[in-house]
Lab assay of single mutants.
Amino acid sequence: EIHIRTNGEEQARKVYKMLAKRNYDVKIEQHNGQWVVTAS
């Protein structure tokens, strides 16, 4: 499982799309105001 911390919604969405293209199961979560993308 991969966790990627991003500094904002826009970046989180870019990372989300990139990983989704590679057939990862991707989730975006917010932790303490930080956007974290989780891929498995």
Rank of each mutant, 00 (worst) to 15 (best):
D25F: 12
A20R: 11
D25S: 09
I2R: 04
K17P: 04
Y24F: 11
N23E: 05
K14D: 06
E10R: 12
K21F: 07
E1D: 09
W35Q: 00
G8R: 12
D25I: 13
R5G: 04
K21H: 09
G33S: 05
M18D: 12
I4F: 13
K27I: 07
I4Y: 12
E9Q: 07
Q30N: 11
Y16A: 15
V36F: 12
R5F: 14
E29H: 07
I28F: 03
I2V: 06
K14I: 09
N32T: 03
W35L: 02
I28Y: 03
E10I: 09
V36A: 04
E9S: 05
Y24H: 06
G33W: 02
R13C: 15
H3Q: 12
A20N: 05
V26Q: 00
H3M: 13
I28R: 00
H3P: 02
G33I: 01
T38E: 03
N23S: 07
I4H: 03
Q30Y: 14
A39E: 02
Q34I: 14
A12M: 03
I2F: 12
E1G: 09
Q11E: 13
W35E: 00
R22G: 08
Q34G: 08
I2D: 01
V37R: 00
K14Q: 08
R13T: 05
Q11G: 05
D25T: 13
H3N: 08
K27V: 07
I28N: 00
N32E: 10
H3G: 03
K27R: 10
K14H: 06
E29R: 07
V15E: 03
S40Y: 10
R13W: 13
V26I: 05
G33V: 02
A39Q: 03
N7H: 08
N7I: 10
A12N: 00
H31G: 04
I28S: 01
D25Y: 11
Q30I: 12
Y16R: 06
K14Y: 09
N32M: 08
G8Y: 13
V15R: 03
E9R: 08
G8E: 12
T38A: 04
K17I: 12
E9A: 07
G33D: 06
L19G: 01
I4Q: 02
E10P: 06
E1A: 13
Q30V: 14
Q11F: 12
I28G: 00
K27D: 03
L19P: 01
I4D: 01
M18W: 15
E29G: 06
Q34N: 07
N32D: 10
A20H: 06
A39W: 12
A20F: 06
K17A: 13
Q30T: 07
N23K: 07
E29I: 12
A20S: 09
Q34D: 08
K17T: 10
H3R: 14
R22Y: 14
S40N: 09
L19Y: 05
R22I: 09
N7P: 06
H31Q: 11
N32H: 07
R13P: 00
V37H: 00
A20I: 13
M18R: 06
T38G: 02
V15I: 15
T38H: 08
Q34W: 13
V26Y: 01
D25Q: 13
V36R: 04
Q34A: 09
A39D: 03
I28T: 01
E29S: 11
I4W: 08
S40W: 11
